[in-house]
Design a protein around this nucleic acid. Structure first.
Length: 558
DNA sequence: GACCACCGCGCG
DNA sequence: AAAGCGCGCGGTGGTC
């Protein structure tokens, strides 16, 4: 059963009950204020799949009113997937002209009090769009697989909204202590004192009294004048130099980064009432990974993770999927030898034991090189040995790279399809066009290879993102049923006494859990990971172990 | 003053 | 030790 929600004008909403093909049966019009009550009642009695234009618009106000939903379909996210999906090519949804459903999502609601209508016009008739999408899935090559992708993407959108709602527990006090400890104290508007002292040392060592070390061009000039043979001010180049300025400069750069990215200003802007509430952009990356908008949620430096602390009586349960991408590659390629290596808790050790490489380091760089398309250094050196040991797995990424180079599109395990290469002058045909100059041809080939590295990585990174969404979806259900024993139904705050997800970082999840449930949550994270593996790869025989830590500070996990 | 490209670095 | 993939963000210095 689907219930489609649509915005009407004048603060009204229409709820339309549809069957699984998207055919409407009955409908109800109501005031926006009445929506949370309707959703809560319908949820309890019928457990439908809610269908709406976008979760980021509809769900936050429901959460703010204390209503959690179990299942949803985010039509805008699904439209984007179906538009490009090779499996649905030829269906009307792939060929119809661009319309409002293709428009980028409106900015996410802040504060949870705004409904979709107030964030910009809704894209149109949601009932019709649901029917179009259901028809496209039904007509596609693998309806079940594509349907799983749409469901996974949608559950991701629910989790994103719920995590923003709950927030990542954050101690401003601890954060300030970390800043003072590392950067020094700041009085007035100038640099914190440890940074200012370092800046002065840099000026002294370079003999450049007026130098502002924050200015890359000025710094580069000063470095060159002082006799350092560097072409840039980047860390890896500086590290090769033997000069007394290097140590204070690298230290200064580290502190400067911390000050500008996660300093006092960031704290004031992003942490309120003991919570950091980032805005996640589900499907914001071409591969299907999430992006974030503001706050740099997906770049939280390790040095600041000591400020992430649970509420009194609660714990953080931090789980990290070990070697996710190599395991995904083993599973999707059906490479029996690599799958065997993937049965080890540490897959890189498993690869060492297979005899293909000498040590863990080689296994790691070799695998990353295979997945990213490394052409130099250690990863290139071990590539031939990996190819001999794991022909099916290496064949899969090589094929993906060739497909990209030759302008064929590639797809993830669940059918997310890579975009077509841009229409730039240097693209595609120029590589083979005899009338082009040598330079043009070289550049085109360069671009083709670069696109090949993208498609090579797309299939693995994208499938890993699909695994992660299945993991979080499975975990979300378990957490909710676990919490049922703790929280009275219909509590105003759905997560007040229940373990709930608070952070997601590509292959890592954090649950904020009542202390007495922490171990049970840890087990749920492991079980959900295994479940996600079976969901995607029923026959692969690859394990998806997660490292779990129950901690009082995020920094203490691993 | 608004906008943009580039650099450099944080994360996976 | 860095490289090959995917991102977001702040600072600087250029353009309009």
């Amino acid at each position: 059963m689907h219930v489609v929600l649509e915005s009407l004008d004048a603060g009204a909403v229409r709820a339309v009950w549809c069957d699984d093909a998207g055919t409407p049966a009955e409908e109800l019009e109501l005031d926006r204020d009445e929506l949370p009550e309707l959703v809560a009642e319908t949820e309890a009695e019928e457990s439908p799949r809610w269908v709406w234009s976008d979760t980021a618009g509809w769900y936050p106000p429901l959460l703010a009113a204390g209503v959690r939903v179990d299942r949803a379909l985010d039509l805008r996210l699904c439209r984007r997937i179906l538009r490009l999906a090779e499996g649905a090519a030829g269906t009307p949804i792939a060929t119809l002209p661009r319309d409002a459903w293709d428009a980028p999502p409106p900015p996410a609601a802040q504060g949870g009090g705004l409904f979709e209508l107030e964030r910009g016009a809704p894209p149109g008739d949601a009932v019709a769009e649901l029917a179009r999408q259901r028809a496209a899935v039904a007509a596609s090559r693998e309806p079940g697989v594509l349907a799983l992708l749409l469901a996974a993407e949608s559950v991701g959108s629910l989790v994103a909204a719920e995590m923003s709602h709950a927030g990542l527990p954050w101690s401003a006090e601890r954060h300030r202590a970390i800043l003072e400890d590392l950067l020094g104290s700041r009085d007035g508007g100038s640099r914190p004192d440890r940074m200012e002292a370092l800046a002065q040392r840099i000026r002294d060592e370079l003999g450049a009294p007026g130098l502002n070390p924050d200015s890359a061009p000025a710094l580069l000039k000063a470095l060159q004048v002082a006799g350092l043979g560097v072409q840039s001010t980047s860390r890896w180049e500086l590290q090769e130099q033997r000069h007394p300025v290097v140590a204070p400069l690298l230290e200064y750069k580290k502190l400067h980064r911390m000050l500008t990215a996660n300093g006092w200003h960031w704290l004031d802007e992003w942490v309120h009432d003991g919570r950091f509430r980032p805005v996640y952009v589900v499907g914001g990356v071409v591969t299907g990974r999430w992006a974030s908008d503001g706050g740099g949620a997906l770049q939280l430096p390790h040095s600041i993770r000591g400020a992430v602390v649970p509420d009194p009586g609660w714990k953080l349960v931090v789980a990290d999927a070990a070697q996710l991408e190599p395991r995904v590659l083993a599973a999707m390629s059906g490479d029996a030898a690599m799958a065997r290596a993937g049965q080890a808790v540490d897959m890189y050790e498993g690869i060492v034991r297979s005899g293909a490489v000498a040590d863990r380091q080689e296994a790691k760089y070799g695998m990353l090189g295979a997945i990213y398309g490394g052409t130099t250094g250690a990863s290139a050196r071990v590539l031939p040995r990996l190819t001999r040991a794991f022909p099916a797995a290496m064949g899969l990424v090589e094929r993906a790279a060739r497909d990209g180079e030759q302008d064929r599109r590639v797809r993830t395990w669940l059918g997310r399809t890579s975009p077509r290469r841009g229409e730039g002058a240097a693209d595609g045909p120029a590589a083979y066009d005899e009338t082009r100059t040598d330079a043009e041809r070289r550049r085109a080939q360069q671009d083709a290879r670069s696109w090949g590295r993208f498609t090579r990585n797309f299939v693995v990174q994208g499938t890993a993102a699909e695994w992660a969404m299945c993991w979080m979806g499975a975990l979300r259900s378990r957490l909710w049923s676990m919490g049922e024993r703790e929280a009275p139904a219909g509590a105003v705050e759905p997560f007040a006494r229940r373990p709930h997800l608070v952070f997601f970082l590509h292959d890592e999840l954090i649950v904020h859990a009542p202390e007495e449930l922490a171990e049970e949550v840890a087990e749920a994270m492991r079980v959900s990971a295994a479940q996600a593996g079976r969901m995607l790869f029923p026959a692969a025989g690859v394990e998806f172990p997660v490292q779990v830590a129950v901690v009082d500070r995020y920094a203490d996990a691993k």
